[in-house]
Design a binder for these strands. Structure first.
Length: 439
DNA sequence: TGAAATGTTGGGGCG
DNA sequence: ACGCCCCAACATTTC
């Protein structure tokens, strides 16, 4: 006893950066040497398809960069391929741990995981403290005057902006505390291969503030053929860019862009206050009475971009080939799946979760439930996007379509999986039937 | 952060 | 000149 060095641990999760990191800042101010760790969670990784997974690769590559910076400071990142429970049990044997710090994670699995780790640590007399870092305002920081959470975006966004004037964005600068990382000789950076993954050549979106894009964001963001969106979703998801820095940037430049960041806060707030939405349930519970057609052949056509609706197929092929889809097109394909094909939004949500590099449970679930009509502040069930009209409005010259569906003008292009007018009526009838509306 | 159906209006062709 | 009708164009309602 007494021979083990006293340290604190910072647990990286969705905050993979050394700059402007709230939890890391707080822990470094305590003055106890900080050991930074990352856990490749077997509970998550073992469900993934191997050997290629670009999100695991992105995390790994980011951690390698963090590790380099730490090595220059005589420290390093300790990484694990295990479960959090086992990692902390192991660390408790090797070190005298004073405190463990992480930043808040609002997903149901993460909340349960953190509760479990907290109780394990607390039993050993170790503090487990967590901080807000992933969003600007969280949980119940922006509520209606009666204290209940908002479920409508517009009034939420007004209160959010009001709150920002009283509670300005902070910056958590750790540059003066870089000597407080634990000095140790053998940091462990797990190779991708030892977890069953292989590196694949891929160019991730750059981590730069979208100066040029934000300038014309309001005008351009709906046109998928234009480079008009920031593509920063991936960096926000893993915290490789600071939401505080980005929101501060947006605040000075584009209300429309700022609103998109507020949507992100909104859906994280919804997920935390209404965790059932993250467990396969509709926000509006009457929507769980809907019986979907769930035709597997049609779902397969949707996934592969073979529906015969060019704008839908272009989007689905972009997703499959690049791990990204333009946001306007996400709404179109989601409306098509749930309303034209009457396939359960959960199927679409799962497909996006598997393929989107910027996948984020809160935003993805929010978006799908918005499209299906089952979400808070959602598109009403009778709002059925007409793919032809959406194309007319947002891709008039079919530039986006031709990029992803090169056979668009040829006889090789498939016939429509269903006729729009028929599908629209079937959708309205079906929703009305199960929602018990008069029709 | 729709679309389609239905209703209204007003200009102009034409008997 | 006048009224009738057609039908854009726009507005409102409905799904």
């Amino acid at each position: 006893m007494g021979t083990k060095p006293e340290i604190s641990i910072f647990w990286f999760r969705r905050d993979l950066r050394l700059e402007d990191n709230h939890g890391l800042y707080q822990l470094l101010t305590r003055g106890v040497p900080v050991l930074p760790i990352f856990i490749f969670d077997k509970n998550i990784l073992d469900k993934l398809e191997k050997p290629h997974d670009l999100r695991v690769q992105f995390i790994h590559q980011t951690l390698v960069e963090i590790n380099w910076k730490l090595l220059e400071l005589g420290s390093g990142l300790m990484s694990f391929y295990s479960t959090p429970e086992e990692v902390f049990s192991d660390l408790m044997k090797r070190y005298q741990i004073k405190e463990v710090v992480a930043n808040h994670d609002y997903e149901p699995y993460a909340a349960e995981r953190d509760e479990q780790i907290k109780s394990i640590l607390n039993l050993a007399g170790i503090h487990f403290n967590t901080y807000k870092d992933h969003v600007i305002f969280e949980k119940n920081e922006v509520t209606k005057d009666d204290g209940l959470p908002y479920t409508i975006f517009t009034p939420y966004s007004k209160k959010w902006k009001l709150r920002l004037t009283k509670d300005p964005i902070r910056h958590f600068d750790i540059s003066s505390m870089l000597d407080r990382f634990l000095q140790f000789k053998t940091p462990t950076m797990i190779p991708l291969e030892s977890m069953g993954f292989k590196f694949k050549e891929f160019k991730f979106p750059p981590k730069t503030f979208p100066e040029a894009i934000v300038k014309d964001y309001g005008d351009n963001r709906n046109f998928p053929a234009i480079i008009g969106t920031s593509k920063l979703g991936l960096h926000l998801r893993f915290g490789t860019i600071s939401i505080r820095a980005l929101a501060q940037f947006a605040l000075l430049r584009s209300e429309t862009y700022l609103n998109e960041l507020i949507w992100r806060d909104f859906y994280h707030m919804i997920l935390w206050n209404f965790p059932h939405v993250g467990k396969g349930k509709s926000f509006k519970k009457e929507y769980d009475a809907i019986e979907w057609r769930n035709n597997e052949q049609e779902f397969d056509k949707w996934c592969k971009g073979q529906t015969g609706y060019p704008i839908v197929d272009a989007g689905m092929r972009e997703l499959f080939q690049t791990g990204f889809m333009h946001n306007r097109v996400r709404m179109i394909v989601a409306s098509f799946l749930t309303k034209h094909l009457l396939i359960d939004w959960r199927w679409g949500e799962a497909w996006f979760a598997k393929h989107l590099l910027d996948f984020d449970l809160a935003a993805n679930n929010g978006g799908w439930q918005w499209a299906a009509g089952s979400g808070c502040d959602a598109a009403p069930y009778f709002r059925v996007f007409n793919p032809a009209l959406q194309t007319e409005k947002f891709d008039k010259k079919a530039e986006y379509i031709r990029k992803w569906v090169p056979e668009f003008d040829t006889l090789d292009y498939p016939q429509p999986v269903v006729i729009h007018e028929f599908a629209r009526k079937r959708c309205l009838d079906n929703y009305a039937k199960f929602l018990k509306k008069n029709s």
